[in-house]
């Protein structure tokens, strides 16, 4: 079983395209696109969103993401109207990054809260990837997000500096032998390979260290084919985590 996703857009094409993108990285997750108004034009359709939530729910709950304001309102109304509103959450996140992050988290077996958190933090990672946006609070936000990604976080989300009380952990140098490096699909494979382990895993490259379970953060490292990254792990299954990443790299990420 897995948490399901419902992508609510004003446009059917936008919702479908995003579902296609998210599902590529999460083949076992129900990702349901809902786009367009009841009359087929641009807008949102309350009844269609409700039906999609029912279909996406395999018993572990549903996360809804939306594109613009009225899609949020429609999604919220649907959740409020459920017999058990706790089985679905509307997440405020960038539509594309949030959906991809949520899909990968669900694929990795995260529960409803875990998928919500993955989607909600996608905003910060996207800011880090972009390397800062000029002007105003957005630049501040992106800078803050970049600072977070250079300091690995614990499960509880507390930033910790390098050389902290966790100790150095186990580490391995891994050469990315595939052509594209930690691009979307390989990043998703890596994140999935360690998702179920009892270990904290961080990938370091060019002075940055990111959570290995976050596809977007991995992509944000911009590590290319031929580059060497350091994988560091803490916890009971730390050695297994390193082994899995090494195996994946040796298989050239199945390219």
């Amino acid at each position: 079983m897995t948490v399901g996703l419902v992508l609510v857009s004003h446009s059917a094409k936008l919702a479908e395209g995003l579902a296609e993108l998210a599902a590529q990285m999460a083949p076992d997750v129900p990702v349901l696109p809902v786009g367009g108004a009841p009359d087929g034009g641009l807008g949102t359709d309350y009844d269609a969103v409700g039906a999609a939530v029912d279909r996406a729910d395999r018993g572990d709950g549903v996360v809804l993401l939306y594109d613009l304001g009225s899609a949020r309102m429609t999604a919220e109304l649907v959740v409020e109207g459920l017999n058990d509103p706790r089985r679905a959450h509307v997440v405020e996140a960038p539509f594309v990054e949030g959906a991809v992050a949520a899909a990968v988290a669900a694929q990795g077996g995260a529960d409803l809260d875990g998928v919500v958190a993955a989607a909600a933090t996608a905003a910060g990672e996207a800011g880090g990837v972009a390397g800062g946006v000029a002007g105003g609070p957005e630049a501040e936000f992106a800078a803050g997000a970049a600072a977070v990604t250079t300091a690995p976080t614990t499960e509880a989300g507390t930033p910790e500096a390098g050389g902290d009380e966790r100790g150095p952990g186990l580490s391995a140098e891994v050469v990315l032998r595939n052509e594209v490096g930690l691009h979307a699909r390989p990043a998703a494979l890596l994140a999935r390979s360690v998702a179920d382990l009892d270990a904290e895993v961080v990938v370091e490259y060019a002075g940055a260290a990111v959570d290995a379970r976050s596809v977007l953060a991995l992509m944000g490292l911009n590590a290319r084919g031929g580059d060497t990254v350091t994988v560091r792990a803490w916890g009971r299954q730390a050695d297994q985590a390193l082994r899995r990443v090494q195996e994946l790299a040796e298989r050239r990420f199945d390219e």
Binding site: A37, P38, G43, T44, Y46, G69, S70, M73, T74, L77
Partner: peptide, 15 residues
């Protein structure tokens, strides 16, 4: 209104 309007005014007037 919530079911038929499609734009933001559906959820808003509906609510």
């Amino acid at each position: 209104l919530i079911s038929t309007v499609g734009g933001a005014s559906g959820p808003l007037y509906g609510t």
